[in-house]
Design a protein around this nucleic acid. Sequence first.
DNA 1: AACTTTTTTTCGGGAGCCAAAAAAAATATC
DNA 2: GATATTTTTTTTGGCTCCCGAAAAAAAGTT
Lengths: 415, 415
Amino acid sequence: MTRKADRDQIRRQNRSIVLQALRRNGPTARIDLGHKTRLSPATVTAITSDLLDQDLILSLESEEPKTQQARGRPRTLLKLNPEAVYTVCIRLSVNNIDLALVNYAGEVIRDRRIHFDSATADARTFPETLVEAIASFLQEAGTSPSRVREIGVAAQGVVETETGLVAWSPAFSGRRIPIVAPLQAAFGADCYISNDTNMITEALHWSDPKRYSGTFAVVMLDYGVGMGLYLDNHLFSGASGTAAEFGHANHIPGGALCRCGKRGCIEAYLSDYALVRAAAGLPDDTDPMTIEAGEKGLARLIELASCGDADARRTFSEAGRVLGYGIARVVAIIDPSRLVLTGAAVRAFSFMEKAMWEGLEEALVADLRKNFALDVMPWNEDYIRGGLIAQSMERLDSTFYGNAAARPDRKEAPA
Amino acid sequence: MTRKADRDQIRRQNRSIVLQALRRNGPTARIDLGHKTRLSPATVTAITSDLLDQDLILSLESEEPKTQQARGRPRTLLKLNPEAVYTVCIRLSVNNIDLALVNYAGEVIRDRRIHFDSATADARTFPETLVEAIASFLQEAGTSPSRVREIGVAAQGVVETETGLVAWSPAFSGRRIPIVAPLQAAFGADCYISNDTNMITEALHWSDPKRYSGTFAVVMLDYGVGMGLYLDNHLFSGASGTAAEFGHANHIPGGALCRCGKRGCIEAYLSDYALVRAAAGLPDDTDPMTIEAGEKGLARLIELASCGDADARRTFSEAGRVLGYGIARVVAIIDPSRLVLTGAAVRAFSFMEKAMWEGLEEALVADLRKNFALDVMPWNEDYIRGGLIAQSMERLDSTFYGNAAARPDRKEAPA
DNA sequence: AACTTTTTTTCGGGAGCCAAAAAAAATATC
DNA sequence: GATATTTTTTTTGGCTCCCGAAAAAAAGTT
């Protein structure tokens, strides 16, 4: 049963909409906020004066507006108060912790990369390491931890959003590492953790909501294979928060050996180590950990293919066919309107494309595969940070209302 | 951006909640409606008096309430007015059109099965046939078509909910047959079409919302293989409405021949004809259309297995392994909290179970497969009708508000 | 200085919710 | 039979929304 509606909900929602409009459009006059949000001028005045009282937004009088308008009362622009609250956005990769301090306007005011050698470090102490890293980062920045109201983390591997831990990651040699609980305990802020590809998905929706709305999927071919799902206009993370593990969906029973220990995973055909292993003619059960792949391995392979090396070309072509089959299964189950292909390996897309389409056609009946568009998108790591920022800001915007806590939770309605 | 909130929305939502509470609990006093909906008594009075004015609900004074309560003003029970509106729920199977006339209380007041021989009939004229069948059904029932405000259709095969047509079905030899548009034109009611397994999914949520909420999947093993997805508390049907086509997700590249013409679909290993084909030792590219399977074929196979026939046992065991792999892929991508297995073939589940778990274990890393529960559920066709009724009633409840049309559309927010 | 134009604020009204009081309609008690 | 008690329902009054319209503010134009 749907939850009952009451007045508070209206105001909360409308405040949140005004904040979103300001974040998306930068300094804006009340009258334009009215147009953008479809609220009446009177209501915009009421809401913005609340927000001004709370120092969440600022009035931009002194600065010269000098828009095109000539006559009439000049519009006073409003903007988010950058210093109202701060967010820390963190990206965990195999060897790095990337920290960013972000203000309420969504601007990165300081960032820092900390090396973390996952091969030698003890995964069990990682949470403490992370807490210390954040604390010293904030101290350097001269920002009191109490002003940080939101901490977002993106990690590679299998992330359990619901429990707030990394369930399986190459960085932690497969150990389950709690992240959200230690951060929450240390800083008291609202914390969350998500898969890195989910954050790319969120970033796409933020940067081009026209194109990336409704139901779409993102497949990331990188050092590992990830997926993000945006379903019915919401980021989807499944019941325990581990959905969209495209890379560990099986392709061939008993097939090539994957880093996760199983055989036949899509990742075992498409990721960096899989490509290097195949191109080198190694048996497909060669332990992935013994393969030197990563950025260098992949780059060399792409170069070889570009030079016309037959083995490299064949490797990419076979990978493309696997990709086609994988996409076919996702399309059959999810029916997205668009599928975005990204990650370091899309540089080699031209070598995979033909086989990919062939695989897709072999795998899926025409009626099901004609309704989706494919985007191939080179990318950079900033997308992950962008998604974290978008997600954090959305959580913040819907939090502020008096002292009322409780962000409405889409997951479960109370009995 | 979220839509702005206003007062109308509140009232609409609360009215809808009251109607839902009445539908779920039967005759209920205002005071209990207050408890169930968490609305104040004053508000319940206001809303119910509106609903009484509109004849959507009835007051049950004369009849003896005689509840356990002894003293105090007696509660007057309210109930939905069964005659307020009518719904027609239609199930299309290969050879039958099952019609049901349902009143606003969700009770079936008349039903009828019409034979439709899809082998000889012309699929192109099916829409007219359907319209005529409904019209004569209503006439027999003595119900004016104008009182029918909702028509819901469930069909087997690939159903495009968004365009309102059957894209591929064994009943129509693969032709695309429009359903919603002709019905809408003929009757003016709000019409929709959905996949039959989606309706089972909806029925499960309706009948046991505690157990079947959040994110869960339903797999139907029948004369064909279907799936329904309930994600984040909403029935999910994908961008074009063809999601959850589990049966046509590929299992083995270049594998067994499927009814859809492709090779290696899960259906080509798990459906009635696939089992009969395998048990008979026929080559796996034997044309499914030439195989006598259906209810009888499946029943005989189950009997053989029960008697200890080795070939039959092996057939089911192999099918179970495929099922395990298929479930593993769904779990990797969707991460449901529960997976329901149903359909005619679950009678043979005991012969498939061991291999299914083995397949699941082979295919998926442990971290991803330990978060879901499996239900095996015998079923009957009434579930589909139940889901249609639940869906139709939900659509009706959120429709009535003054003359305002516009059921809020979860799919797309306006710019 | 008076008019025009545009934005913002104020004011009054309507709609929704709720808490509390009042009314209604029984049974229990004397 | 009259009064008290209990429980449900309705009414009242108050609060908070939002909105339309009017008023005010703050320019530029004539």
